[in-house]
């Protein structure tokens, strides 16, 4: 079957039930997306499927056929306005500590900001609710919230 990832087509010879996470990491070789729990609970595996944030560890590749997948590598390569704003905010506020959860955090943040009506920056409570599915053992939550708010102001 064919997967379209970051605007490129890949021919995948795998069980249609294989989680997208493993197709991305092991078959295609895009290792920016991380495995955290394998149960959709931690958010480290977050990618975009037709622009929606999904947990790739519990989404089979059959779900992605005919749709567009975006991973952290493309989302932060500067070609997307929202992704670039989030990346810049992440650097400005020195958000990452160990960094393992950060790909998932950023993908969730980008999808959230894209879903917001323009001209209306989200409240702290709205940011917290949107980012609720991404956990961080290092506890850099305060800086995540600051960076998301900062990026929101920039793209408003």
């Amino acid at each position: 079957m064919k997967l379209t990832v970051n605007n490129r087509e890949f021919a995948i010879d795998a069980d249609p039930a294989m989680p997208l996470l493993w197709a991305l990491r092991d078959v295609i070789g895009l290792t920016g997306t991380k495995f955290g729990c394998g149960a959709g609970q931690c958010g480290a595996c977050t990618v975009h499927l037709d622009g929606q944030a999904i947990r790739s560890c519990i989404t089979p590749i059959s779900e992605a056929e005919g749709k567009k997948l975006t991973t952290i590598e493309a989302a932060t390569d500067g070609t997307d306005r929202v992704g670039a704003a989030v990346h810049a905010a992440w650097l400005k506020h020195d958000v990452a500590q160990c960094g393992y959860c950060q790909s998932g955090q950023i993908m969730s943040a980008i999808a959230f900001l894209k879903s917001q009506p323009s001209g209306k920056p989200p409240t702290s409570a709205e940011i917290d609710a949107a980012m609720d599915g991404n956990i961080c053992r290092c506890g850099t939550y305060a800086r995540i919230r600051t960076a998301v708010a900062d990026a929101a102001r920039k793209i408003a």
């Binding site: 895009l30 290792t31 920016g32 997306t33 991380k34 495995f35 991973t71 952290i72 590598e73 932060t76 390569d77 990346h87 992440w90 650097l91 020195d94 958000v95 990452a96 160990c98 960094g99 393992y100 950060q102 790909s103 950023i106």
Partner: peptide
């Protein structure tokens, strides 16, 4: 001072053991 590994860790470029 900003961390030297900040850029890699916010763009999926940082390698971990699993990678």
């Amino acid at each position: 001072t900003s961390r030297l590994d900040a850029r890699a860790k916010s763009s999926g470029q940082q390698n971990f053991g699993i990678d």
